[in-house]
Design a protein around this nucleic acid. Structure first.
Lengths: 407, 407
DNA sequence: GTACGTTTTGTGTAAATCCACAAATAGGAT
DNA sequence: ATCCTATTTGTGGATTTACACAAAACGTAC
């Protein structure tokens, strides 16, 4: 602890990075807790592809983060104040390096990375790195405070959008610019429902994940009791609908994989371009969640509003069919037949319709021979007097089957 | 005209038939205007299969009526007071015979048939037959009056059913018995919409047709402005739904074929068993008619409530989607693409869905090669980001396409 | 138990679908 | 004009489907 070079005050993190770099004789990179680049040393031009990509993109590339998670590096950094060494991973252009986490109380504020280009750091140098981490703490706290203030502005704006508080398009766009976000021309809203109230720890995990996932750009996010709500931009992205779906899957998978948070229910709106419709999008995602609650098994694979099918209108359909005391003669006949003869024609029909009239898949799910299924379908046509080639009749049956299930 | 044997009064039509039979030396049958058996001679046991079937069934078999129409016999009888001769038609067991119509003013009340078993009737005997027809006139008028009174009771009862005026099942069944109709355990309501108010002539044609069609039993019928409403029994009939459909088709075809009455719009309810639901059935048929008005081309082949598919709920769907300002991103993308590139992806998609995802039929209707259609479907999946194997997505699209059409 | 009808499964064949690839065509942009 | 891309149509082959027929399994009624 004698003669600590980092005791001296410094103006900027860049200056500090350069200082550390000089002491340790290797390139230095400082990141925040979400792997955003805060500063990097410039006195040394020896580097590796991963560092170049990080500097260019102002953040650590997603695949590098993924790799560091898989290798157990990030978990270690999050668990201890000790430096961790990473071995070369060629596939992602990662050379040998040492990392240390920056702590404030029991919270990680960021990381310092030292590349071992020519020589390996010795024990003394590792210790030096650890002291460097401690020295950046205050600087990072300041940054975080500044960020928190900005974060509050984001929150307020997002809720204004979610409640249609801003009605003119121009007003919305101006606000986006004011917050230095480029207003999306194509966007969607995703809502994730957690099994319990989202806590402070969860919040941090979520923020971490959102910052590190790079594919679709998460413009705004907020948490409301058990729900995480996101505004996602699809500017310049091909196949936004599919990307939105993929993102939601990914998010749920990562939350489970990295933080062990399970049973998150995902939902998302359709893709929209009119910024005044953020509230509508939010409500769409809410509708998806409601359907998933009502029809857990049927809607297990439905995440997007666009895939809701008849469930989009299930409320009014239930209401209407209730007042009408609707009765489907075909279904009634089949049910009677099933009861009398111990058959499963109704179930067979439902699976067949669920599987989009695909004999093969339906037979598989029912664990019967395709010929058996064909025979049953023939019987269904006869007994229920149904023409299974008529889309209207099929929709009628599909509808009535689902409606009946709800009663 | 000297010595007319039919001047004498007679008590019953049976007695009269026997008298004519004795004079002409051949079996005599008397029918009303709807080919119901009124009386037949019994002093002569020579006969043919058609006459036996008529006597057994108390009406002329439908296939015999059809044949007589095709041969032009019935049209002639309806056009003139002169006797008409029918040549043997072996297929339906019809031997040689002569018929004459019974007139009151300009209306046909019935027919007299004379079988030419051994000898052919000469001119004088033909004339005699004509005078016999004249002599039955008064008797038939009396019958008709009696029938009219009963008919009025039918009418009143039917309207009570159609307006749910009778609420208890027992009450309804008792009323059926009182009118000597066996209450149906399975029934449907059909409504035919005419292009103009149904006139007195039309009414007669309709009554004629309903009485002569034998397959499903028309229990009650009534006319309301432009509409003909029927209550049809399906007791002991296999596949009632299909039979109901077939009957409606048949009725429309015959009205056109026999009386030249075109553009009748047919509709019918689902098949029901609860007699308290006659009104519901009536409303169902009304819904079908309403859909046909709104979607003439889409619903051209939909006649039954059970085939309505989403159209069953079209009203509330339109309402709901209107208030929601629904927008389908996939459809919007396809429409934009169509506009930009002069393609027909939206139309292609619609035809494909209408044809129940049958590539072959859809390609035919679009007049393109199946491969072209497959290519387009692939593009549709890409551009609209649609999974055409997902029934929910397909239903969403189908719905939104139809809803958009209505806006 | 037998007899009967219904259901399941297997076999085979003609037709239809799916997919990949290639050639021809059309339309726009430069 | 030329190039380029998107579209249409054609060909061939692997896979699926539709349908008919037969054998086996199953349940029920007698």
């Amino acid at each position: 602890m004698k003669n600590d070079p980092f005791r001296a005050s410094f103006d900027s993190l860049e200056e500090f990075a350069d200082m550390v770099s000089e002491v340790l004789h290797c390139p230095i990179t400082i990141e925040d807790a979400n792997h955003r680049l805060l500063a990097y040393s410039t006195h040394d031009d020896r580097t590796d592809p991963a560092r170049i990509a990080t500097i260019i993109g102002r953040r650590v590339p997603e695949k590098v983060i993924n790799s560091l998670w898989k290798e157990g590096v990030i978990p270690s950094l999050l668990n201890s104040t000790e430096p961790v060494r990473v071995k070369t991973v060629d596939e992602i252009g990662l050379g040998n390096r040492v990392a240390v986490s920056i702590w404030k109380n029991d919270e990680v504020l960021g990381f310092i990375w030292a590349l071992e280009i020519e020589k390996t750091l010795g024990e003394e140098e590792m210790d030096c790195l650890k002291r460097a981490a401690d020295a950046t703490k205050n600087k990072l706290i300041q940054l975080q405070n500044r960020k928190n203030k900005k974060e509050e502005q984001f929150q307020e704006f997002f809720w204004q959008l979610l409640t249609s508080h801003l009605s003119s398009n121009e007003e919305i766009i101006n606000k986006f610019h004011a917050l230095q976000i480029s207003p999306p021309t194509l966007f969607g809203v995703a809502v994730f429902h957690f099994s319990k109230e989202v806590g402070r720890d969860d919040e941090k995990h979520i923020a971490y994940l959102l910052k590190t996932i790079q594919l679709p750009k998460i413009l705004l996010h907020t948490i409301d009791h058990q729900q995480l709500i996101l505004l996602i931009s699809f500017d310049g992205i091909q196949q936004p609908v599919n990307k939105l779906n993929a993102f939601c899957e990914l998010f749920v998978a990562k939350m489970k994989e990295r933080f062990g948070i399970k049973s998150i229910v995902q939902s998302h709106s359709s893709v929209k371009c009119d910024l005044r419709k953020v509230e509508k999008a939010y409500k769409e995602a809410g509708t998806v969640l409601a359907v998933k609650r009502k029809f857990p098994s049927e809607a297990i694979n439905i995440h997007g509003y666009q895939s809701l099918g008849i469930y989009k209108y299930i409320d009014i359909l239930i209401e209407k069919s209730g007042t009408d005391q609707n009765e489907n003669y075909s279904l009634k006949s089949l049910q009677e037949y099933d009861k009398k003869n111990n058959t499963d024609l109704v179930e067979t029909l439902e699976v067949f319709l669920n599987k989009d009239s695909n004999v093969h898949e339906a037979a598989n799910q029912l664990n019967v021979h395709t010929n058996t299924l064909n025979y049953r379908l023939k019987r269904i046509s006869e007994i229920g007097e149904i023409n299974l080639k008529d889309p209207n009749q099929k929709i009628t049956l599909y509808l009535d089957l689902k409606l009946e299930k709800f009663k």
